[in-house]
Amino acid sequence: MKTPMAAFAALWLAACTPADPDPASTPAQATMPVAETPSGAAAPAPPVAEVVDDPLAVNQTIDDVLGDHARYEAVIRQLQQAVAANDAAAVAALVNYPFATVRDGQPLKIADADAFVREYDRIMTPAIADAIKRQKYSQLMVNYKGVMFGNGEAWVNGICKDDACKDVDVRVVALQPTS
């Protein structure tokens, strides 16, 4: 998977930026979503956008870095509503599969939405749910890795559906403990 910005950055920065570590082999506190090319190679890191307290600025940053903010905002709002309602199936419908995270220091791989629902209470810890529910849209942090909730407990990003990354599906790409 790769983001539109990562597709551009891969061409621009390929020779000068080392790849991010594999999230499955790194402790959850140190991981963030890794943009990947369709072949699975990690894309290099372009500059990071800063956190602001302005929904219009967040929209503009999403537009500039990731693409159409309306698509991201819809998924962000759906995620917050689903988590607030403790609706495991609605959250599962927003997740990119296969899904990988770390729980109790061990890798946890989820193949599909049915498995996600079965593991929901283990994946959606109270701390992660709280970070998602409390996140103000106007204070989201946005960079090429996606849109971050809290201190990195949740990430939403665009998943390329084609090699040119013209067709993007916005999904939850990470739910992880940060402490």
Rank of each mutant, 00 (worst) to 15 (best):
I62W: 02
A14L: 11
L11Y: 04
L11S: 11
Q106T: 14
A42W: 02
A100Y: 06
K2I: 11
D104P: 06
Q81D: 08
E36P: 02
A9T: 12
A74L: 14
P33I: 06
V168Q: 05
L140K: 10
V173A: 01
E119H: 12
S25N: 14
P107E: 08
L79S: 08
Q60T: 14
A93R: 09
S138D: 12
F116M: 09
D169E: 11
N96K: 15
V58G: 03
Y72P: 04
T26Y: 11
L56V: 01
N157H: 10
Y72C: 02
D68S: 11
F149D: 03
E73T: 08
M32L: 12
A113F: 04
Q176T: 07
A7Q: 10
M141A: 10
V102E: 09
I128K: 05
L140R: 09
G146M: 09
F99N: 00
R77E: 11
F8A: 05
A57E: 03
A7R: 13
C160P: 04
C160Y: 06
Q135G: 03
D53L: 03
V102T: 09
G67Q: 04
K161W: 01
F149V: 04
Q29D: 04
V52W: 04
Q60R: 15
P38I: 03
E153V: 00
A24W: 10
Q29Y: 10
L94F: 00
A111N: 14
P33K: 12
T3L: 11
A57Y: 02
Q139K: 04
D20E: 15
P18H: 05
A88Y: 15
T125N: 07
T37F: 03
C160D: 00
P47E: 08
T101E: 02
V102L: 12
A19C: 13
R118D: 09
D121G: 15
